[in-house]
Amino acid sequence: MNEELPVSGLANAAEEVKLAVDLIFLLESNNIDTDVALAALEIVKQDLQAKR
């Protein structure tokens, strides 16, 4: 019996959605405090914008 598995909605998602899901998983699985995560993400955002 060779049944095909349905394609996950995430498999068809935009790259930024996939990355966001990965980042959320990383933060949650490491029990990162929400305020710390938001502060770190702001630093990352500023760094990436400076590199544009």
Rank of each mutant, 00 (worst) to 15 (best):
L41V: 14
L27V: 07
A20P: 00
K45P: 00
L10C: 05
V36P: 01
A37P: 01
Q46V: 06
F25R: 13
Q49C: 11
L26W: 13
Q49D: 11
A40E: 09
A39N: 08
M1G: 04
V7W: 11
R52Q: 08
D22G: 00
L23E: 15
V44N: 10
V7F: 05
A13L: 10
A14Y: 11
S29I: 05
E28C: 02
N30F: 02
E3C: 02
A11I: 10
A50Q: 03
A50T: 07
S8D: 11
A40M: 12
V21D: 00
T34V: 14
L5C: 07
K18D: 10
L5D: 09
A37I: 04
D35M: 00
N31M: 09
L41C: 09
A20E: 11
Q46A: 14
D22L: 15
N30K: 04
G9T: 03
A11N: 08
D22Y: 13
L38T: 11
E15C: 07
V44G: 09
L48G: 08
D33T: 01
V44R: 04
E4T: 01
A50W: 02
N12P: 00
K45L: 07
M1E: 06
D22A: 13
V17R: 03
K18I: 10
K45R: 15
V21R: 06
L5A: 06
R52P: 02
E4K: 05
L27C: 03
E28R: 05
E4R: 00
I32D: 01
K18H: 11
S8R: 12
D22N: 15
A37V: 12
L23G: 00
A37S: 02
K51T: 08
A20I: 12
V21C: 02
E4P: 05
E42I: 02
I24W: 09
D35G: 04
G9Q: 09
E3Q: 03
N2T: 08
R52A: 09
E28D: 06
P6W: 09
A20Y: 15
A20N: 01
P6T: 05
L5W: 12
Q49P: 01
L5K: 13
K18C: 07
V21F: 12
E4H: 09
L10V: 04
L38G: 03
L41M: 15
E16G: 01
E28Q: 09
K51G: 04
F25P: 00
D33N: 14
M1R: 04
K18M: 07
F25I: 02
T34W: 00
L5I: 12
E16Q: 05
L5F: 12
D35L: 06
E42F: 00
F25L: 12
E3N: 12
I43Y: 08
L27E: 03
N31R: 10
F25H: 04
L10E: 10
V36C: 06
D22P: 04
T34G: 10
K51M: 09
A50R: 11
L10Q: 06
V44P: 07
V36R: 08
I43F: 03
K18N: 13
A50H: 11
S29G: 01
L23K: 07
